[in-house]
Computed example of a mutant assay.
Amino acid sequence: MLDEGLSGRRERILDMLTLAVRQHPGAAGVPLTPETRLLEAGVVDSAALLDVILDVEAACGLSFDPLLLDLEGGLTLGMVADAFLLDADAEAG
């Protein structure tokens, strides 16, 4: 279970990701939740996803670690947020 600080940080990253994803045409009319499968739903393509990740890295000052992703079940908004959080925890520890 996430502690309150980690949970709040995850929410902030999810908010930033959502705002960045909403800038792309594929996101129009698609409800975005942490479970939204970004590529499969056509919300973003791989190039747009890279733009989103870079935008959020610049906005929050955290690094994104793609090695923390498990792509077997599809890439969700929550998985992207967690790759920021897990990387931040590794840097802090």
Rank of each mutant, 00 (worst) to 15 (best):
L39Q: 01
S7C: 11
L75C: 11
M16D: 08
A90R: 15
A28K: 15
R22F: 04
D65M: 07
A41L: 09
L69G: 10
A90F: 12
P34L: 01
G26H: 09
D45N: 15
V56S: 04
A48C: 08
A48Y: 06
T33G: 04
T33V: 01
L32F: 09
L75V: 02
A59C: 03
A28C: 10
L50R: 11
G78Q: 12
G5V: 11
V80S: 08
A47K: 01
M1K: 04
L19S: 13
S63C: 14
V43G: 15
T76S: 15
V52T: 13
A48M: 09
M1I: 02
L67I: 06
D3H: 12
E40A: 13
A58H: 13
Q23Y: 07
A83T: 02
A81Q: 06
L67E: 14
P66H: 05
G29C: 10
E4H: 12
G8E: 13
A88Q: 05
L75A: 04
T76N: 09
A92S: 10
C60L: 05
L54N: 11
G26T: 07
T76G: 14
D87Q: 15
R10C: 03
A83H: 00
I13H: 13
A83F: 02
V80A: 07
E40D: 09
G5D: 13
D15P: 00
L50F: 15
G5E: 14
E11W: 00
A47V: 11
D87N: 11
D15S: 12
V21T: 00
A20C: 05
A27C: 14
D51S: 12
R37W: 04
A90T: 03
L71I: 11
V30K: 07
